[in-house]
Simulated assay, not measured.
Amino acid sequence: MVDSGRAEHALHELALAEWPPAAEARVISVSFVGPTAEVVLVVNGDYEYWMYFTRDDATWVLDHDGNGPS
């Protein structure tokens, strides 16, 4: 079972690490479905971006990402 508070914190860090500080990226939501997590960000103040992670043992791995939900 996933500790959602701890997982959410880890996913925030992973998602934001992909963006340079100038992008001013911020996480607006994290949701879980089984071993998969969807992280939605706002980049540059108005651009929404989706990142999908899969849990592999104790690690979250980026599965796919893009400019819309999938």
Rank of each mutant, 00 (worst) to 15 (best):
V30G: 05
W19Q: 05
R6M: 09
V39A: 11
T36E: 08
A7M: 09
P35S: 03
A17T: 08
L11N: 05
E48I: 08
P20Y: 13
E48K: 10
W60K: 02
V42Y: 02
T54S: 01
H12D: 15
R26V: 09
F53D: 01
Y49S: 01
H64F: 05
W50L: 03
N67F: 00
R6S: 14
S4D: 01
V33A: 08
V33T: 03
D63M: 07
S29L: 03
S29N: 14
L62D: 10
T36Y: 10
A23N: 04
A23Y: 13
A58S: 08
V61Q: 13
D65P: 00
V27L: 04
Y47M: 06
M1L: 07
Y47I: 09
L11M: 11
A17L: 13
V2S: 06
I28A: 07
S29V: 00
T54Q: 05
G34D: 07
R6K: 14
N67C: 01
V2M: 08
V61H: 03
P35V: 00
V61S: 06
E38N: 12
L62E: 05
Y47P: 00
M1A: 07
V42R: 13
V2G: 03
I28F: 02
E8L: 04
E8N: 09
W19L: 10
V30T: 14
A25C: 11
I28S: 10
N44S: 13
Y49T: 01
D63R: 11
A15P: 11
F32G: 04
V42F: 02
V40M: 13
F53N: 01
S29K: 14
A10W: 03
E48G: 07
T54P: 00
A25M: 03
F53G: 00
L14E: 14
